[in-house]
Amino acid sequence: MVAQEFTVDLNKALVFQVGHLGEHYQEWVHQSIVSKEGPRFFANDYVEFLTRTKWWVIPLVWLPVVCFSLMVSIQRGNTPSNAALMVVAGMFLWTLMEYTLHRFVFHIHTKSYWGNTMHYLLHGCHHKHPMDGLRLVFPPAAAAIICVPFWNLLILFTTPAMTPALFGGGLLGYVIYDCTHYYLHHGQPSKEPAKHLKRYHLNHHFRIQTKGFGITSSLWDIVFGTLPPEKSSSKMT
Rank of each mutant, 00 (worst) to 15 (best):
N78M: 15
T79D: 09
C67A: 14
L166S: 04
F224N: 07
H24N: 12
H196A: 10
Q31G: 04
L96N: 03
V61G: 07
L63E: 00
D178P: 12
I33M: 05
D45W: 07
H24S: 14
V88F: 08
L227Y: 12
T100F: 09
W151E: 08
Y200G: 06
A3S: 07
H119L: 15
E230R: 15
H109Y: 12
A43R: 08
T237V: 14
G77T: 06
N11M: 02
N44Y: 00
H181W: 04
L122I: 11
D221R: 10
S218F: 02
P39V: 02
P193L: 08
F6R: 12
N11I: 00
H186Q: 05
L122V: 07
L60G: 08
M131F: 02
M162P: 00
H127R: 05
V15H: 06
E5D: 08
H196M: 12
Q17Y: 03
P80V: 09
V8G: 09
H127D: 04
F104T: 10
P64S: 11
H30R: 13
H107L: 10
M1T: 11
P189M: 05
A143N: 13
E27P: 00
G90V: 10
N203S: 13
I58C: 13
S190G: 06
I108L: 14
T110A: 08
Y113W: 15
G38S: 02
N203G: 10
S35Y: 00
Q75R: 12
C179D: 05
K235Q: 14
S232P: 01
L166H: 00
N11H: 11
M71G: 04
V65T: 01
P80W: 09
L134R: 10
K198Y: 00
D132W: 02
T158A: 14
Q26K: 11
P228C: 12
E27C: 00
V65I: 13
L85G: 15
Y113P: 11
I208G: 03
Q31M: 05
S217L: 11
H126I: 00
S234I: 01
V34Q: 11
Y120H: 15
Y177W: 09
R207N: 04
H181P: 12
S73P: 07
P164F: 04
